[in-house]
Design a binder for these strands. Structure first.
Lengths: 140, 140
DNA sequence: GGCACAGTATCAAAGCTTTGATAGATATCA
DNA sequence: TGATATCTATCAAAGCTTTGATACTGTGCC
């Protein structure tokens, strides 16, 4: 309580992220996806056969969290999972055609938002924001 | 997939917020609190007797989400809830002494993080970041 | 070969969040 | 007074996230 709320830069970042997530959620919802599901599919399309653990690392969540996301994607028929050739302890994950289609729809909507954000700044301002956010993250 | 990941400013904000939340979570954990619980207590200490619905609006979450947070705070003896004088449909929420103590501990740890972040920038840079984030939020 | 280490998957518990639906109380206006 | 609108709380369902614990498999070193 020593620090006024207005002074806390963290609050601003949190609010910005909150608004961003709300907008993204609404966007990918048109494809029947949640944001974590969309994020997973986005990594998956460039890494066919990736393991759940590797996918979790890529998405910056725990393997347990990714397991739940994959379970739901599997239930909706957007991915397939099967045993790996020689790593018997691994499960290969692949996109289905339905998954590719959902990702295409969701990404189109998500890009609209990113584009709207990017267009709100000049190239110099974008660089500036990138730099400030990098130092923000670094400071933590 | 038309837009490279590096170009998406949203990703940078998300990553910054993710790191911030991880740090804050570790900080308030020393007081036995979660981040949402800490946020609720922070509003509560300045608004004694506030209703759960108003608290939810203040914290930018749904009343249902706040109900769960309050249930857990109640279970840990950090708050008290009782019927309102004339609004029989309202429940007044108040901090207990244990709640005040937990908040004091948690806030001290949280302020350390905010201070570390603030110190990473010059006053001009802080203003700049504030402005850019405001426009970021506005653009969405 | 045997052993420790790292990677993978999974179960369980606790907690946060949303949307949707229900029900009771208060306030406003015709 | 009565209808409408609004605010309150709460139940239910679905989903995401974390920490902690368990077990199996492959790799590298002795």
């Amino acid at each position: 309580m020593d620090m006024p709320a207005e002074e806390r830069l963290g609050l601003l970042v949190k609010r910005a992220e909150q608004r961003l997530m709300a907008a993204k959620h609404a966007a990918v919802k048109t494809a029947g996806l949640t944001v974590p599901q969309y994020a997973a599919l986005l990594v998956l399309v460039d890494n066919p056969g990736i393991s759940a653990a590797a996918l979790a690392r890529e998405c910056l969540v725990t393997p347990q969290a990714m397991t739940v996301v994959l379970k739901n994607l599997l239930g909706h028929g957007l991915i397939e999972r099967g045993p790996h050739q020689w790593h018997r302890t691994m499960l290969e994950t692949h996109l289905t055609d339905a998954g590719r289609e959902a990702l295409r729809t969701a990404d189109a909507a998500a890009v609209v938002i990113e584009r709207r954000i990017a267009d709100a700044f000049t190239p110099d301002e974008r660089d500036s924001l990138r730099d400030l956010l990098a130092r923000f993250t670094q400071a933590i």
